[in-house]
């Protein structure tokens, strides 16, 4: 008797959950507010600017979604970004005389490898060294930041002038009107969503973050899953670095400063649980957009004193999280 009832239940469509829509609703509300506050908000250039800018945080945050949902945390992403950027520019400048514009491709490849290695370092410290991710990545955050400061003598590492022009389209260019960084972000998010929701690795990531003991007792190597998440994070940082360099053409000791906090905020606003186990890649992107739109609105509207901008941003973020909770 029970079986008939149950197969019926099994066939029922998955219930629509408002809570899952939270970040997108919040984004819609922020955009609506933008439209009402300033007419130039909706202008094509402004929208393109805002979306393009949010690409860095969004791409890095996709990686952070892996780390956080597997039960880790990475505070080093901002510094790592600066370090990877520095290495890439130095490589490109070194190779430019012999290779010309192809130096950009090789430099980008080197960046991806360095990013992955930085992530691997974080991962191994956390899993093999068994050090709390917060402390481990706080340590590497200092290390990467010091390395870029040292590499630049506290000044900046500019890219060779000969490479500026051929490299420029990677940030400023577009395909069919869509800015290139936006396309890159979409690709990263699609790959991220595919891995998280469709593959064994994604499942294991979620299991390791939800309850590491259950994962271990189910034959999942939690250490391997978490280390891989950190490596994915490192690669995402490198991808962000690739499209960051052509924007200003230099790495400085302030590059990527405090980005780690923006990244974590984007991930959490997006609905991923900070304690692990729940991953929302698309929500993460919405989170990154929300942060960037709010910052944009602060400048566009004349309502807020320049001294209070940070306070208003903080209040909006907390309101978004509270709304999220109440929808649940």
């Amino acid at each position: 008797m029970t079986t008939s009832v149950l197969t019926e239940a099994a066939a029922a469509p998955r219930r629509f959950r408002w809570a899952d829509m939270g970040p997108f609703l919040a984004l819609a509300i922020v955009i609506l507010a933008g439209v009402m506050l300033n007419s130039s908000f909706l202008s094509g250039t402004n929208i393109a600017n805002v979306v393009t800018r949010s690409a860095f945080i969004a791409i890095i945050a996709v990686g952070a979604t892996f780390v956080i949902s597997s039960g880790g945390l990475d505070l080093s992403v901002g510094s790592m970004m600066a370090f990877v950027t520095g290495i890439m520019i130095l490589t490109m400048n070194r190779l430019e005389p012999s290779m010309g514009a192809n130096a950009i491709l090789v430099g980008a490849g080197v960046g991806l490898v360095v990013g992955a290695l930085c992530g691997l370092l974080n991962g191994l410290i956390v899993t093999v060294g068994k050090i709390e991710p917060f402390i481990a990545t706080l340590g590497t955050m200092g290390i990467f930041r010091a390395l870029i400061t040292w590499m630049s003598d506290g000044g900046s590492i500019p890219i060779d002038r000969a490479l500026r022009e051929p490299y420029r389209p990677v940030y400023f260019g577009n395909v069919l009107g869509i800015p290139f960084p936006v396309i890159l972000t979409l690709i990263v998010v699609l790959i991220g969503a595919f891995i998280l929701y469709r593959t064994k690795y994604g499942r294991r990531c979620m299991a390791a973050g939800s309850n590491a003991e259950v994962a271990r007792f189910s034959g999942v190597s939690v250490a391997r899953v978490r280390t891989t998440a950190f490596v994915i994070q490192g690669i995402c940082v490198a991808v962000a670095a690739i499209c960051y360099i052509p924007r200003l053409g230099a790495a400085t000791p302030t590059t990527g400063q405090l980005w780690e906090l923006q990244v974590i905020t984007a991930v959490v606003i997006g609905g991923t649980a900070l304690r692990g186990g729940k991953a929302r890649v698309w929500g993460t992107v919405a989170g990154a957009l929300i942060l960037e739109v709010i910052a944009n609105l602060m400048v566009l509207s004349n309502m807020v004193s320049e001294y209070l901008v940070a306070a208003v941003q903080g209040v909006i973020i907390i309101l978004a999280m509270l709304a999220h909770r109440f929808i649940k």
Binding site: T149, S152, D153, G154, G155, S156, T252, P253, T254
Partner: peptide, 12 residues
């Protein structure tokens, strides 16, 4: 310490 451009110059 050299944490940004200007202080970098000071150190130099």
């Amino acid at each position: 310490a050299a944490t940004h451009g200007w202080t970098g110059g000071v150190v130099y």
